[in-house]
Design a protein around this nucleic acid. Structure first.
Lengths: 193, 193
DNA sequence: CTCCTATTGAACATTTTGTTGCATAGTAGA
DNA sequence: TCTACTATGCAACAAAATGTTCAATAGGAG
């Protein structure tokens, strides 16, 4: 049995609005009242869908934080694969709502189990894609297995997030080039010792 | 002319409470009402000190985000200096309120100029202390000047913050040892090429 | 066409958020 | 100690936000 299309429509328009509010005004302003005013959906309906403010915010988090499917590129060379993958990741931070909403999720995660789940699942996915790139490089023999891959993955992802979310510095092609260069040089010089 | 001690006392107890609320319940719950209930200070007094909710939160941010004075250690060797400095930094993230409050400041910075100032100033201070360590190593001739120091500094600080604030992974001595080892190996192998 | 269900709008109580005026009490200076 | 000053407390208040309930309506499924 299919779900009532009205339910789906309400959820979608409501969460769309919630997401926009989240970006423009911050998590503080994501309330049933604000979403109602933004969408025309009556408050009573919103309360039926999300009983309290937290579940509404969590739903908005979940909606935006589903990792996009990144087309994998692991055919080498390492520098090229890494450049491609981190370029996509950087683009998501720069040009999608995720870049603006991630900080709110990070903050909410301090005292909201659901938000914490959202962010850790998201990061697990990101890490997996970076790991695939390194694993392929090891498989090709481009780097050896004794490279500290886990640390490299963490640095690879940490840098752009730190730069964007915490320092509010630009994430541009130039920076990314240098970042990838450094990562590769670490991988190469630690390889085969 | 000295300031009225009542002003000082009120500010202090109020911000103490605000900070505790910030840690325990999140920025959402830092309100005049909550602080009043927690301290016994009347709401009208709190409103006199901080006209709106934002200035109250900003004041709490400022209070906790003043960088502690880290006793400098730049007498080498690089690994030892770095281990010491990042150990202090890691300790602050693990064992002081800053570790719990930083995420809230990060989130607020998305749409609050004051919060952004707080966090960027804080980071500028952190970066400066790491830079001093590398500069000293260059001065001693332990590494050469063509090491990409700026990138190393960013990685050095980004990793613990990312790990703690975003991934909610443990920051322990063991992890720090490996982190410092990797940083040093980058510095050494990139040195003098 | 009919049954089922989601939405709406209004009314309502409750809580939170700001504001104001005045009495009280603590502070500084003569 | 006396006086002028000012921060606080308190109560009363208006305004807005937050939840809750219910009957009427409109949309979807068979």
């Amino acid at each position: 049995m299919k779900e009532d299309p009205r339910l789906i429509a309400t959820r979608q328009t409501a969460l769309d609005a919630a997401q926009r509010i989240l970006m423009d005004e911050g998590v503080l302003h994501v309330t049933h009242g604000a979403v109602s005013k933004a969408t025309g959906i009556s408050r009573s309906t919103l309360y039926r869908h999300w009983p309290d403010a937290r579940s509404l915010r969590d739903a908005a988090f979940r909606r935006i934080a589903t990792p996009p499917n990144i087309p994998p590129k692991t055919d080498g060379p390492l520098r090229s694969d890494l450049r491609w993958l981190l370029g996509v990741l950087m683009g998501a931070l720069n040009d999608t709502p995720w870049g603006q909403i991630a900080p709110q999720v990070v903050a909410a995660a301090s005292n909201d189990e659901e938000a914490r789940l959202v962010i850790t699942e998201f990061m697990k996915d990101r890490f997996a894609s970076v790991e695939a790139v390194f694993a392929a490089a090891v498989g090709r023999g481009e780097i050896t297995a004794d490279v500290p891959v886990d640390q490299l993955i963490e640095l690879a992802v940490a840098a752009p997030y730190f730069r964007k979310l915490i320092r509010h510095e630009a994430l541009d092609e130039d920076w990314l080039d240098r970042h990838v260069d450094l990562l590769c040089s670490i991988a190469k010089t630690n390889s085969g010792q």
